[in-house]
């Protein structure tokens, strides 16, 4: 065993090696790194179209109809004996197809035994299981962004930064296509910054410090700018926005313009029911799986079954919001 003689005066330098600590963990809770934490499922604008569990298919059709009611005024009759031709109506559908998603973690028994509080609170298997809903949200968000990036019509341009003109074009799309509810836009951090910079020179904001501050301020963590620029569009910011063709592919839609289907996971009968957690509303299932052989390893696995798809262009006005990468 190592011994050492401490000579007078006893200094930190001499005692450090045997009696001291190179460092101690701060008593405060272990800090989570920065992450894009935009939650879309609770916004109330991405509608749940239905549950495919027990239906024998992974695809849900969402029907729409038109050419009736407000879209079909009555015909003027020139003569009281004129006949009235029966009117047709129009029907159509869109589809939502679910995908399967997975996530797994492992932890050794020794790791569990020796883990200090920092580990238990952050990266123990139980802590990671508790964060699975966040992973579900991140997956859901990415899928919504994939769907938005596939909208047909766009405002903005692949070679220029996003500007007030593009925000006006977006608002115009909803001004002229009547019947939509308030639109929501989804852009990435660079796009919202491009918009803010462009709005800085707008005459309307030169007279109102309050509006100007609301416009240019950084969000408080919600990553949402309500009614940005007073144009009636709420802007949500996430860096899951897709890029293609050298352009950022933001997007906008009114409530319901993107929908999702879930497969309720309750019918799953796992090998180890005691370790199972069902979150049927999200199509999420978390289970504990014994690892093979004699390994002293604990494993948790999450499975999710859901799909996201755009609603019909006949029902919702949707736009991509593109700007230079």
């Amino acid at each position: 065993m190592a011994t050492s003689t401490i000579t007078a005066p006893f200094s930190y330098a001499q005692t450090f090696g045997t009696l001291g600590h190179a460092y101690l963990f701060a008593a405060e809770r272990i800090a989570l790194r920065l992450q894009d934490s935009k939650v879309l499922s609770s916004l109330g604008i991405i509608s749940l179209r239905g549950d495919v569990a027990g239906l024998g298919t992974d695809t849900l059709r969402v029907t729409d109809f038109g050419g009736v009611g407000f879209a079909l005024p009555m015909t003027e009759l020139a003569s009281e004996t004129d006949t009235v031709a029966p009117s047709p109506a129009s029907i159509g559908y869109e589809e939502v197809t679910i995908g399967q998603f997975g996530l797994a973690f492992q932890e050794t028994y020794k790791g569990q035994v020796l883990a200090n509080e920092q580990v238990k609170m952050s990266i123990s298997l139980d802590a990671l299981k508790a964060r699975t809903p966040d992973s579900w949200e991140a997956t859901f968000r990415a899928k919504v962004c994939e769907v938005g990036a596939a909208f047909t019509t766009a405002v903005g341009a692949a070679g220029t930064t996003l500007s007030v003109d593009d925000a006006l074009d977006l608002a115009t799309a909803y001004d002229v296509n009547l019947g939509n509810t308030t639109p929501h836009a989804f852009v990435d951090g660079t796009q919202i910054n491009q918009l803010k910079r462009s709005f800085r020179s707008e005459p309307a904001f030169q007279n109102s410090a309050a509006d100007f501050a609301k416009m240019l301020g950084i969000t408080d963590g919600t990553q949402t700018y309500m009614n940005l620029g007073g144009l009636g569009v709420d802007y949500h910011v996430t860096n899951d926005i897709e890029q293609s063709g050298g352009a950022r592919q933001g997007f906008a839609f009114p409530a319901g313009g993107i929908g999702w289907a879930v497969a309720n996971t309750l019918p799953i009968r796992p090998a180890n029911p005691a370790g199972a957690i069902y979150v049927p509303a999200f199509g999420l299932f978390i289970e504990e799986i014994p690892t093979g052989g004699n390994q002293t390893i604990r494993m948790a696995r999450a499975t999710a079954l859901f799909g996201v798809a755009a609603g019909s262009d006949r029902v919702y006005t949707k736009r991509r919001i593109i700007s230079v990468v």
Partner: peptide, 28 residues
């Protein structure tokens, strides 16, 4: 309209359609 070409031309907009399950009708 082109942005980086020497001559201004009307060009097709081309975008990506990802084949990842769970969006736009793509399934596992």
């Amino acid at each position: 309209v082109s942005h980086a070409s020497p001559k201004s031309t009307l060009l097709p907009e081309v975008t990506m359609f990802r084949l990842a399950p769970g969006a736009n009708g793509v399934r596992t």
